[in-house]
Design a protein around this nucleic acid. Sequence first.
DNA 1: CTTAGGG
DNA 2: CCCTAAG
Length: 699
Amino acid sequence: MVLQKRLDYGFSGYEVPAVPRATRSARKRVPFRKIVEGNQISAFDLLATVAGKLLDKENDTASNYTWSAEDQSAAETNTVKEERGDGNQSLKLEFCNQDGAKAEFFASELVSQTSDSNYSSKESPSLRNGALVATSDCLERADAQKLMNGKIKKEMGGLSCHVEAGPSVCGTSGDGIKPVSENKLLMDEELDRTDKALIGEVADKCSLEDALVLDVKPPAIVSSDGSFKARSYGDHNPLVSFTAKWDDVNVVSRDDDEKSSGCTHPSPLREPFRSTPRIVDRRIRKILASKYRKVAPRSKNVTNSNFDENLKSGYCNRSAYKRLRSGRNYPFKKRKFFYCRSESNSDGGTSSEGISDSSGNNNNRSISILYSKMHGVTGESSSPADQHKSFTSSNSHVKLRIKSFRVPELFIEIPESATVGSLKRTVMEAVTTILGDGLCVGLLLQGKKVRDDNKTLLQTGISCDNQMDTLGFSLEPNPSHTSPSLCPGGSPLKLPRDTPLPLSRYPANPGLVNQVTCDPSPEPRKPNLGNFIESNNGCASSPTDMFDKSTHESKALLAVPALSMETLAVVQAHKKSKQSEVAQRRIRRPFSITEVEGLVQAVEKLGTGRWRDVKLRAFDKAKHRTYVDLKDKWKTLLHTARISPQQRRGEPVPQELLERVLNAHTYWSQQQAKQQPLPESCLLYHNSTMIASSRSDVD
DNA sequence: CTTAGGG
DNA sequence: CCCTAAG
């Protein structure tokens, strides 16, 4: 069974620009939180939710308008259209992604006003609140994304698994997740009076799970009998399926005239569900024709928009297999952690071990940072005036501006000897796992950007003794992924200076810029610098000693992005015995000439098939060089020696060494060939040509 | 755990 | 550098 990856993210209080209509105020702060299945956040999801919340508050005069936005990151085309019918309003959001999955999202205005409370109160209390409903015409797909309204969840009682907003869930480990109440407090501070009132209203009206938490994407299947089946992933009940009759599902039903009929009614649907796809198709085609091509197709991201692709079940399975297969932890291979952690729902248990587990017992001098605050900041965005302009310049298009967001609980442990670049990459990897590609991470230290990726953290001034609150990370659009044409209107996303926001969880849009400031970690740090010196001592005789004085052997980087409390906990449960399981790709440490010299020498002596001996002989004290590393280095050396000098990169290896590499290789190949009887054909070939020539002077 | 190779 | 199949 494929376990779904779940991602919990949310925003609160980011600004939504004015719906292009004069009667609407310039911007609305829209608090919301939502959870999706899959690890890809797209503007699509964002938009759907935002739109829903936006309309929640937009109860003014009925008039049709259309607005849309395009997701820069995922090459999805989003169209948001408001429809009105029966005096109720609904918002429809259409999108399609590359692989043809099409879905429609409906954000129905269901906030109960006094006028419509007559039907909503009893049979479906949750319908009183804003709900987001989606349909999909890819029902066959196991990963078809569905939206359910709050009612389903509510009726399932304990299955409303995504109500993580509650302090009981968020605050368990006391490691930086703020209870909602506190968040709300912060939120309020951020808002001006008007917005404050607005949010208060919403909060009052909606329960957490119905309004602030919009549970958007549980995989669902619509069976032939018209019942709506969905799987819900409970905190403690990983895969619980339940069904609900369509009658109970609040779906927007539409006719071809595109008028909404009864979208806000909990009453039975009049229209067979199957009729929807047809309409969808039509619309999708339209969208495709008009807009889709404008979105620069970036294949990688595009594919990532497939939720099921992000399940990476393959990774997980393989990793599990590996864990079973061997218990080694050397070299550290923990990368898969990122891919597997959230699937581990099947482990079921949540754990209170928290992250402390992961950093414990680490004797390396490392900085444990608990990034508990992330808020956006941008230096590059234009002036507020420009931004405002960009929002209002083009009618019928919505430009979302996320003022800030926060990625909670990005836990990172990294040696001081690590480079800034590796730190960035570590953070990036953590974040990317959540967001998908399209972002890069910037590092700010005391407000200044740290650009030199090659400086070590120590050199940069990031050390144990440092106040971690001076450190900041920024999520920036990946330069290689820039696609200027964000929306038909042509005005790109502008990102303003931001203010920290509370409830927010994960950012959704690669067009965004945000910053991460990190608090001092509650984790016990390991500030014993004594070993530092030692670990590089006493190896003066080895060729590797000249190298890398500044780096002590570093435990692999460790980054634990927090997806949610559950996933975090699951991870902990997973590796109770192996704390170091969570780590990162090792730092790249180019071989110095001295090291190459030592390697060549050892191989000349020992041959190419005895890497363990080579390691022992020449790199015994270089703990970061494994025999596999040496083997790999030899491989690359050989390659380097064979290519033209122009094609070589990196620190040039003396030609003399390269020739020794070649000679040693041919010699030992020959030795090997002598021992193992060759096929006759080979024998003939070898005898006649190459062998004799280059075996002379080795050893 | 080591080797050998592909990624 | 990582990952894995094979010894």
